[in-house]
């Protein structure tokens, strides 16, 4: 075995994989002595996901050498999506058979479910990541953000995100009407805002909706980093890991 890793919460790992599929169907994980990472863009290069789980997230972790593992993450998620809260997940990779073995163990019930998944040929190289700096940052409730994005989608296929020194505003405008949600600090929706002045940019709701929905299942808060008419960075805090997305702006 090149690597063997055991995570204590199989259903949380399944949610993380689902979150990655908000951007890509397949991707290349780089697994080394420190943890597992994946950076990938969707085929249209509108969105990017940057995912990482360090070995600190694992109950047991061993990796002989760095390996690149290209897998169909949709298929992996299909195998593990029915994982239960009290199940442990073990991932093992056999370099000779080019196969990932996934075991779901329920210690209380003494049951063990085992799946294998064939890996794919790694064809494309490293995903380039835009080097961005942001003018404004807000830490918001993932649920409040999700509801605002869902509301925006009722009138349009794109939404404008605005971070002002005193509020986060999600607005949209369609042929038939418009929408605006203001999230202000002091309540349960906004935890922190860092902005010297107001910045805003518009994004496809197709991408925003998928990403917020996926991120909300793994984290209670979302960090929005924004500059005017530049990509937005959305981060969802993951224990001993990282789940970040970039979405390219829609230029009016």
């Amino acid at each position: 075995m090149i690597f063997s890793v055991k995570f204590p919460s199989a259903d949380y790992f399944a949610d993380l994989m689902k979150a990655v599929t908000a951007v890509v169907e397949e991707g290349t994980f780089v697994v080394d002595q420190e943890g597992m990472k994946l950076t990938a863009m969707d085929p249209a290069h509108i969105s990017l996901v940057n995912f990482e789980l360090t070995k600190a997230a694992a109950e047991e972790y061993s990796c002989e050498k760095q390996v690149e593992l290209t897998i169909n993450i949709n298929e992996l998620h299909k195998l593990i999506r029915k994982a239960k809260k009290n199940e442990i997940i073990t991932l093992e990779y056999d370099d000779e058979k080019k196969r990932l073995s996934v075991t779901l163990t329920n210690p209380a019930a003494s049951t063990e479910r085992r799946f294998t998944l064939n890996t794919l040929e790694t064809v494309t190289g490293k995903t380039p990541v835009p080097n961005l700096s942001f003018e404004a940052k807000a830490r918001v409730s993932a649920e409040a953000f999700r509801v605002a994005i869902e509301d925006a989608a009722t009138v349009s296929d794109y939404a404008k995100l605005t971070i002002a020194p005193d509020a986060v505003i999600i607005s949209s405008k369609g042929e038939m009407g418009s929408h605006s949600t203001k999230l202000a600090p002091g309540g349960t929706a906004v935890f922190e805002i860092e902005a010297q002045h107001e910045v805003s940019a518009s994004f496809s709701l197709n991408y925003l909706e998928k990403i917020i929905k996926a991120g909300k299942t793994v984290a209670e808060e979302s960090v929005i980093e924004l500059s005017s008419n530049r990509p937005v960075k959305l981060s969802f805090p993951v224990p001993s890991g990282k789940l970040e997305y970039l979405i390219a702006p829609r230029i009016e």
Binding site: P43, A44, I46, P130, A248, R250
Partner: peptide, 18 residues
Amino acid sequence: ELIHRDERRRGSSLDEFL
């Protein structure tokens, strides 16, 4: 579906910010 998903014609792509 891949063509439908491709919204480059309506916006920018991340490549422009590399």
